[in-house]
Design a protein around this nucleic acid. Structure first.
Length: 428
RNA sequence: GGAGAGGUGGCUGAGUGGUCGAAAGCGCGGGUUUGCUAAACCCGUGACCGGGUAACUGGUCCGCAGGUUCGAAUCCUGUCCUCUCCGCCA
């Protein structure tokens, strides 16, 4: 959420930002409601003060008759206060509904545009796009031939969009986890394995909508829990309602979790195989920072993602996400898109990581603040999240980029020790 | 699943109807003392929503939601959460 005062005082700015983001939030209505809210608040305060004064005066009443008269007066004032409170609650609820729908402000350098067409390529990774002396297969074919991924089994057990990883694919997943966590621990991140479920309140705090027709979230029946779509949710929630010491910031966590997504409405093309699935494992980076640290932290997260994919030897490009494609909480977002030789016709880039600076948008709702040094009061921290490795998509990139003419798949250098072998042999 | 205990400020923790936004300690900020640091001592120090240029000032908040009362951290009901013990279980 944006700061209420900021919205009111910068209504035009916020309105323009909503347009850039394709948000229909009604800022004019918000401003008008905020004035009403303040009026109702003043009214309520007035009644409460009068009622309190009456209560305090009762001890000094000189006889029973006066006591009773005062009591009646007090009762009357409390009733009025209750009515004012009800009116205030109604206005607040209306205000809150608009408030939630207002997206974060956008970084001045974020590309302007309505959708991903306007995303801007800002950099290429070190590894070159590989050339094949044969026609490269896509990971679905490779996974089946080498008995690495069982989509049929997944469908039988849990439905379309689920899968079994088998044989070396399992070792690959574990190796990728370890590879990412090793780097992050060396970089000072606190490693965690987070819950795969979270309270809906926490989902909402991080900007996810647990229920509703377009939700991406699986919710657990008869409870207020949902399966998490990313460890961003659990890591953001970890420090909810806390006031932190400024000196302890920035705090960097990495979280391993499974990620569950309903992918409601997601269409068939370009989402074959492991690309768009209902469950996958992800190593996520998360940081809580001082406001002045968050821009640099975003660059740092992006750089770490680049190092991970440079290390894997997979070609990629870095994309600066356009305003219309940012999603609610993000102030700025960089995606890494890895080269996937089996994708489309002759290979395509496909998104493998995403890192966002959410500034104070999440922390305001989650109540994560810090006490500035030499200043009164508290301020909201900034939160950032970034994918270190999303296993399923990294797996696609590895299988497709490292396939060999003889049908085997080479294991990327950095993973060989962790996998325990140099190549995944062709079968049959 | 069964039984019990508890949720109070940045933290620990007192408080069972008005004088309580709340003792005390810790932490934090300022000061005195002091080669430096530390210690000691003194003073200050909750959050949120308003009003005022400001000094200052009104209101709300003791898990949450209701109820009783002129008045609730305190009494009543419901609810959520946490902890301990027992059972079950990887």
């Amino acid at each position: 959420m944006l700061d209420r005062k900021f919205i009111v005082e910068n209504a035009e700015l916020v309105k323009r930002n909503c347009e850039l983001r394709g948000s229909k939030a009604d800022i004019d209505a918000f401003v008008a409601l905020d004035i009403r809210r303040r009026e109702k608040q003043a009214e309520l305060d007035q009644f409460n003060r009068q009622a309190n004064d009456v209560s305090k005066s009762i001890g000094k009443a000189k006889d029973e008759a006066e006591r009773e008269a005062r009591k009646a007066e007090g009762r009357d004032l409390r009733e009025k206060a209750t009515a004012a409170q009800t009116a205030l609650d109604e206005v607040s609820a209306e205000l809150d509904q608009i408030h939630r729908s207002i997206p974060n402000m956008s970084h001045p350098k974020a590309p302007l545009g309505a959708d991903d067409q306007a995303n801007l390529e800002v950099r290429r990774g070190k590894p070159p796009i590989p050339k094949f002396a044969f026609k490269p297969q896509d990971h679905v074919v490779l996974g089946e031939k080498l008995d690495l991924i069982d989509f049929e089994g997944g469908a039988k057990v849990a439905g379309h969009g689920f899968y079994f990883l088998k044989n070396e694919a399992v070792l690959l997943e574990l190796a990728l986890q370890r590879y990412a966590v090793d780097l992050l621990v060396a970089e000072g991140f606190t490693p965690t394995i987070t819950p795969d479920l979270a309270r809906n309140e926490i989902l909402q705090g991080t900007g996810y909508i647990p229920r509703g027709p377009e939700t991406q979230i699986y919710s657990i029946a008869d409870s207020d829990l949902s399966l998490v779509a990313t460890a961003e949710i659990t890591l953001g929630g970890l420090l909810a309602d806390q006031i932190l010491d400024a000196e302890t910031l920035p705090l960097k966590f990495c979280g391993i979790s499974h990620c569950y997504r309903t992918e409601a409405g997601a269409g068939g093309r370009a989402s074959r195989g492991l690309y768009r699935v209902h469950q996958f494992t992800k190593i996520e980076m998360f940081a809580f920072t001082l406001p002045e640290q968050s821009d640099a932290m975003l660059d740092y997260f992006c750089e770490l993602e680049c190092r991970l994919f440079d290390g894997l030897g997979i070609a990629y490009r870095v994309v600066d996400t356009a305003t219309g494609d940012l999603g609610g909480p993000a102030y700025r977002k960089f995606d890494l898109e890895a080269w996937m030789p089996g994708r489309g016709d002759g290979g395509e880039f496909g998104e493998v990581t995403s890192t966002s600076n959410c500034t104070d948008y999440q922390s305001r709702r989650l109540g994560i603040r810090y006490r500035p040094k030499n200043e009164k009061g508290t301020q909201f921290v900034h939160t950032l999240n970034g994918t270190a490795i999303a296993i399923s998509r990294a797996m696609i990139a590895i299988l497709e980029n490292y396939q060999q003419a003889d049908g085997s798949i080479a294991v990327p250098e950095v993973l060989r020790k962790l996998v325990g072998k140099d190549r995944i042999a062709a079968r049959g």
